[in-house]
Design a protein around this nucleic acid. Structure first.
Lengths: 245, 245
DNA sequence: AACATTATCATTATCGATATTGATACTAGA
DNA sequence: TCTAGTATCAATATCGATAATGATAATGTT
């Protein structure tokens, strides 16, 4: 009765990090992907025991994964009563965009005057991986890398505590984006989301906080308007402007 | 070798929700309190097995609590290598205040024009509990209620997804505040933090987004400047101004 | 002495079984 | 028929034991 996770979940596990690391990480990653792609639609139930069987591991391992999904806000666990996938709404997505923007503006300003030489390699590598994901048309991996990249920016700015907040915002935005049908997928492979990020990184490190802030704002506006025009409109284009001060 | 949690932790558990609910919640609450009060100072190690012994429960139960603390950013768990309390810094606190402000401004604007009659009781009750905590001089419970109150505001504004972000910001701010010695504790009992919140709630529901935003900004500025003047100064008083537009 | 290899240790990760819980269906008595 | 109480059920929550991991100390080899 529970689970539309059915068919594709098993298949999903295949293109996930085969081995190494913790088993609960695998389960977590698989379920997250399944939820973002709506293989587990909102309000569907996730059974610890059933999943344990499906993933070939113990209930406790599933439990740990579900606990993390709960913190991400992707599922809600209640008492002894079960775990269900949370609902989404355009309004929430709009809020997430707003918060994300305000977080990233702060990050950008700080990055502008910071020494990020230590993080350069990480950032460059992430961009490279992005390029790779794009070539292969791997939408999901692209979104993961995007989140990682922006978190890496926060870390480079010395604002590690913000990463989790940023991650969460981006996750929910991506959940909305991936779940919407309006994404013209060819965009993804066509242009260079990696080039876009490379250019962004360059502008961020120009030394001028104002320019950096403008750059990140423009970047977010650009990407959003391209991927989910309706969300971009709902947020309101003027929100991305940096004139007001 | 590990743990300065020693003496007071056991005692700590006493004034926590005696029964009901989950055991892991108890452990979670106790550890959180211990960390905020620096009974477990930054970088101290938390052993699953030892804590299991101390709390009289199984390792898995402790594990669950630690997992949640990890998501809160209060501890960091690494591989098979253990769990340690995270470090803090004034800079992070400053960032948290900034983000919190920007989140709460959005909440305030939305509350101004929303119908919050459904949430009125919850909010009023929280304020009542605050008054109670103050009377008893229970600093920690006061901070918990403050977090709950502001989250309840977000919920009342229909921005449930923001609650966790707000909670996290507030948590780290409170961690800084409680850990600092500059808090003139008598302030807490003296004035009415509850009166302050009651007044805030009234201004928020006046119907005018601009006034609401100004009210929440002033509230945060007031409380912060009173509790942790140094943090208030570090953030910069002008950040709380709502003139810029 | 320098290096690779193995043994040991502290600690988390996972498992399988059992206890709790909250909801619901079922009963017996007024 | 209504209702208090009870049995049942579907879930999670907890437990105790064992396996896996990463770091480090010990060992042997050149």
């Amino acid at each position: 009765m529970s689970i539309p996770v059915a068919t594709s979940l098993d298949e999903l596990m295949n293109d996930l990090p085969k081995v190494g690391g913790k088993k609960s990480d695998l389960v977590y990653a698989a379920l997250k992907k399944a939820i973002l792609f709506r293989l587990c639609p909102p309000d569907s139930q996730l059974l610890e025991t059933e999943l344990a069987g499906r993933f070939g591991c113990s209930q406790g391992t599933i439990r740990e994964a579900l606990l993390r999904l709960d913190d991400d806000g992707l599922v809600r666990r209640s008492g002894y009563r079960g775990t269900r996938v949370t609902e989404t709404s355009p309004e929430e997505a709009v809020e997430m965009v707003r918060i994300r923007l305000s977080i990233e503006r702060g990050v950008a300003r700080k990055i502008a005057t910071a020494d990020i030489s230590q993080h350069r390699d990480t950032l460059d590598d992430l961009i490279r991986q992005m390029a790779d994901a794009h070539k292969k048309g791997d939408l999901y991996r692209g979104s993961e890398l995007d989140r990682s990249f922006h978190c890496a920016l926060a870390n480079a700015a010395g604002m590690e505590l913000l990463s989790p907040l940023l991650l969460r915002c981006a996750l929910h935005i991506h959940r909305f984006t991936l779940g919407s049908v309006e994404v013209p997928r060819y965009f993804f492979q066509e242009a260079g989301v990696d080039a876009e990020h490379r250019a962004l990184l360059q502008q961020l490190t120009c030394g001028d906080p104002d320019r950096a802030e403008a750059a990140i704002s423009a970047h977010l506006a650009h990407v959003l308007s391209r991927w989910t025009p309706s969300l971009y409109e709902a947020v309101g284009p003027d929100v991305f402007s940096t004139l007001r001060k």
